[in-house]
Design a protein around this nucleic acid. Structure first.
Lengths: 155, 155
DNA sequence: AATTTCCCATTTTGTCCCGTTTTGTCCCAT
DNA sequence: ATGGGACAAAACGGGACAAAATGGGAAATT
């Protein structure tokens, strides 16, 4: 809760398809949420890693009432759970990214781990940088952000 | 909170790509927010430096509910975190500007550090002055400013 | 005197590798 | 069909080494 996951690091997959979580991220994660994570893929483009407690809170909402019957919610939950699995940070600070996730997201050798406040995303480095170059933030994007994230001074 | 970052200073990058933060800025920053900063680039044109607490308040909003799944928010967060990193003002008042930020924003030798109330921006001096010349404020801009800015004063 | 610059030593972090364990798969005998 | 044995593949754990980040002393500059 207190710690934000910020910035990005480039790391290598080891022979077995594991990555070492960058120290800053690992410490922040373990302090706030422990060693249990949920790893999945929203689109095959990249891999998402959530602290288990954050994921439970997010996906738990879908259990309220009959929301889980809503078609888009069903579609979403079906996908993320089909692709996903629970993983634990090992004693050396590593996690395994299973084979299908690796293949779909084209993760091999060098990958980029990005902190996104409350979760991590893992990308093929070239694909990520290509995407960012091709689609830079536009004025319309900034307008939208200013609209969506306006709560500058709640307190 | 009490201190505003105002004006601009020209400073030199050291061999390792570090800058010494101008004393006035450094003191204002440390008094209000401590030594932790977040450095990133919204567009490759220049580099933004936020006090960590200011950045967390801004980006923390994206962690609320499922807002971080909104496409524009994802795009924004992905970019700023890919480019960004948390840095700490060291015992000598220095911060590191990493290589990719330096390259993209063409920062070398002498750069301009500008105070923008709650954050700093770092520019290549010539590019900055060129930009200001090429894109002066228009009447339409002033209209927009007059519309938008008064809302900032709820108290 | 105070600040900047240079540079080196220490510590921290990441990488590679190998041995062990677990899991999964295939095939055969009952 | 089904249980089990044997083999193969994937997962896991940890040691040793390499690379990089960090911090600060001391000379140089203002």
């Amino acid at each position: 809760m207190g710690n934000f996951l910020l910035g990005s690091y480039s790391v290598r997959l080891d022979k077995g398809g594991r990555i070492k979580i960058p120290e800053k991220f690992r410490i922040a994660l373990e302090e706030d949420h422990g060693k249990e994570l949920f790893i999945t893929s929203l689109t095959d483009e990249s891999v998402q890693v959530y602290p288990l407690s954050v994921w439970e809170e997010l996906s738990g909402v879908s259990g309220e009432g009959a929301l889980h019957l809503q078609p888009t919610v069903r579609k979403f939950m079906l996908r993320v759970n089909r692709k996903g699995s629970q993983v634990r940070i090992d004693s050396k600070g590593r996690i395994l990214i299973n084979q299908t996730l690796r293949e779909k997201a084209k993760l091999e050798d060098e990958v980029e781990v990005i902190g996104l406040s409350n979760h991590l995303e893992i990308w093929n480095k070239n694909k990520l940088d290509g995407t960012l170059e091709e689609r830079p933030l536009t004025n319309e994007d900034f307008e939208k952000i200013a609209e969506l994230m306006p709560r500058g001074k709640p307190k």
